[in-house]
């Protein structure tokens, strides 16, 4: 259901992808769409093609033209360098762990997309640093010593929150999260998820959250199983 203020940020149609040299496709997606107002939970077991699907959406692997559109742009038509620039302009990524550059401070890590993308920098407001501090504050990292601490000195939970702030800064159209809570304990998982969903709503980014953990499904606008999406 698409409301008047919502817009389509992801459209996958007739996608078939196989790794170079592989005998059969690893992805076969008929139709998948997401609006900027949606937080979608995609569940599936390991090796079911979840990560490959995220890589295809992020433009890391070569997909056929016309199969994936992100924010209205056909990712398959972009050349390699253009895809890299497009990704940082429109997509925020959060991974399982080792998300941050260890020798940079939390704040520097959050500001990283603004250094590579003018669009993200412009959308982060007049002073991206203030925007980064606000995001960190909302994600529970307001302590100045934590903000300026090197990423490697932070706990895993703190690192994931910094990673979330980095994905959210400059309000990209789509946030892709690949098992971002697997290294967190139960309490931390719930609070991290709540924060992430709330912040995505607040900045206006769509969220595609991928996990094998069914206990996290609650509170998402849509829950999809990879087997429904990927018909290989």
């Amino acid at each position: 259901m698409v409301s008047s203020s919502s817009k389509l940020v992801l459209r996958i149609s007739d996608l078939a992808y196989q790794w170079p040299g592989a005998a059969k496709p690893v992805l076969r997606v008929q139709d998948l769409g997401m609006t900027n107002e949606e937080r979608v939970f995609l569940r599936g077991a390991s090796g079911s093609g979840k990560s490959t699907l995220l890589a295809a959406i992020a433009g890391v692997v070569d997909v056929p033209a016309g199969s994936i559109a992100v924010a209205g742009t056909d990712v398959g038509q972009l050349k390699s360098g253009a895809r890299d620039r497009f990704r940082v302009d429109h997509v925020g990524l959060i991974f399982q762990m080792f998300n941050l550059i260890p020798w940079q401070s939390a704040l520097e890590n959050v500001l990283m997309p603004c250094r590579f993308s003018r669009r993200r920098r412009e959308r982060a407001g007049a002073d991206p640093k203030l925007s980064a501090l606000r995001l960190l504050d909302e994600l529970g990292l307001s302590d100045p010593t934590l903000v300026s601490a090197l990423a490697m000195s932070l706990s895993v939970g703190q690192q994931q929150r910094v990673a979330a702030a980095r994905a959210l800064i400059g309000a990209p159209d789509l946030i892709l999260a690949d098992e971002p809570t697997s290294a967190l304990d139960e309490d931390a998982k719930t609070s991290f998820l709540d924060l992430l969903k709330r912040e995505c709503a607040s900045v206006g980014s769509a969220l595609l959250f991928v996990s094998h953990d069914r206990s996290l499904e609650e509170g998402f606008d849509r829950v999809l199983d990879i087997t429904e999406v990927n018909k290989v």
């Binding site: 390699s80 890299d84 302009d89 080792f98 998300n99 260890p102 990283m112 997309p113 590579f116």
Partner: peptide
């Protein structure tokens, strides 16, 4: 290797 992958995820091209 991870550092480079992180850099790519935030917009750094291989070049």
């Amino acid at each position: 290797r991870r550092e480079f992958a992180i850099l790519r995820s935030v917009g750094a091209t291989p070049l």
